[in-house]
Design a protein around this nucleic acid. Structure first.
Length: 336
DNA sequence: CAGCCGTGGTC
DNA sequence: TGACCAAGGCT
């Protein structure tokens, strides 16, 4: 831990650095709590470049500028707005949160940290982010950036993703938090983790808080539990097109990628004699999937969860990225 | 607490 | 190429 006076110097050095290098992300140009929340949920386990690069943030807020605007939106529409971002449960929770705001807070975004934390899909990090970024309230945040910074700052040679490690990180975040400039302080930590105290090849020579940093081997920190080993999986699907319609399958509520449409699956013995149209790979969580797409047998009938859709409506159906790409490729060939 | 959820980038 | 990871949260 740092002494009180040292903490102030630390905060000052961090802030001075930030004001000189800060990027002007769109979510830093607003204090609208709904806009801040949308950005934070999009950025959960998702890099800034992904959110900004394909225009997700701007497009989503044009369509859903307020909690009320999404509260009663169709499932298909919100999933389509999220298509390509992954972790599709996030947008469902975003809608649940919007409904809670409309029903329990009269449509006014809550200002109390506890009320924000109680919203669906909002955990400790996101609640702290909204509280500090939107309202400039003195709430600490710990995300992957902050965890990396503090594990190095205090040379923390234990796992950060354990119960004790998490508790320690939040304690440090709380103790170092600037109550004078919580918004800028938290933004500065995120920026530092991105630009300087990065996962690979940290730029210690450029670090504004180097005088306080205790580690000699930043590249070895933070310590986390080993990842689960990648599992290889085959996925056998079919392309069934008839009279301008295509057969698709909608993932059940409880299933992975719930509500998203993809090509229907069949057992190996049903497809082994069919033509193989496409073979491709994609990753999902800890799986590496080899996707085989066969020409469907004649007179294929819809199974549970499957339905015929007009080819014209394909663009409006929410679809996981691997299937969107595969289908684009297949249909390009189909119509040549 | 362990496991799970998507995708794209990096080396 | 495969392993690792990113503005996490839920079950």
């Amino acid at each position: 831990m740092l002494a009180t006076q040292d903490t102030k110097s630390f905060q000052h050095a961090l802030l001075a650095w930030y004001t000189s290098v800060a990027k002007d992300y769109p979510w830093r140009q607003t204090t609208d709590p709904w806009h801040i929340l949308v950005s934070e949920v999009m950025l959960q386990q998702t890099q800034v470049a992904t959110v900004l690069g394909k225009g997700f943030y701007t497009r989503f807020l044009e369509k859903y500028p307020t909690p009320a605007s999404i509260a009663n939106a169709p499932e298909q529409d919100i999933l389509s707005a999220w298509e390509g971002l992954g972790y599709y449960r996030r947008v469902r929770n975003l809608q649940k949160a919007a409904r809670a705001i409309c029903e329990q807070h009269k449509g006014i975004f809550p200002t109390q940290h506890a009320a924000i934390l109680a919203l669906p899909g909002i955990g400790q990090y996101t609640a702290g982010a909204v509280s500090s970024f939107a309202y400039n309230q003195p709430q600490p945040i710990v995300d992957a950036n902050v965890a990396r910074i503090f594990s190095r700052l205090f040379d923390y040679q234990e796992r950060v993703d354990s119960s004790a490690g998490t508790k320690q990180l939040w304690q440090w975040a709380d103790q170092l938090l600037s109550h004078h400039e919580p918004r800028l302080h938290n933004s500065a930590l995120m920026e530092l983790g991105q630009q300087v105290c990065s996962n690979k090849s940290p730029q210690c020579l450029l670090c504004p808080i180097k005088p306080w940093c205790q580690t000699k081997n930043p590249e070895d920190l933070p310590i986390k539990k080993a990842r689960k080993k990648t599992v290889l999986v085959d996925e056998l699907c079919m392309l069934a097109i008839c009279d301008g319609k295509i057969l698709l399958h909608k993932a059940a509520d409880s299933a992975r990628r719930s509500g998203m449409w993809k090509l229907p699956e069949r057992e190996h013995h049903e497809l082994e004699t069919q033509d193989l149209l496409l073979k491709t790979n994609y990753a999902i969580t800890h799986h590496k999937v080899t996707l085989y797409i066969y020409q469907a047998p004649d007179k294929t009938e819809p199974a549970t969860g499957e339905a015929w859709h007009s080819l014209d409506s394909l663009d409006k159906l929410p679809m996981p990225s691997p299937f969107r790409k595969a289908l684009n490729s297949l249909l390009e060939d189909y119509f040549v």
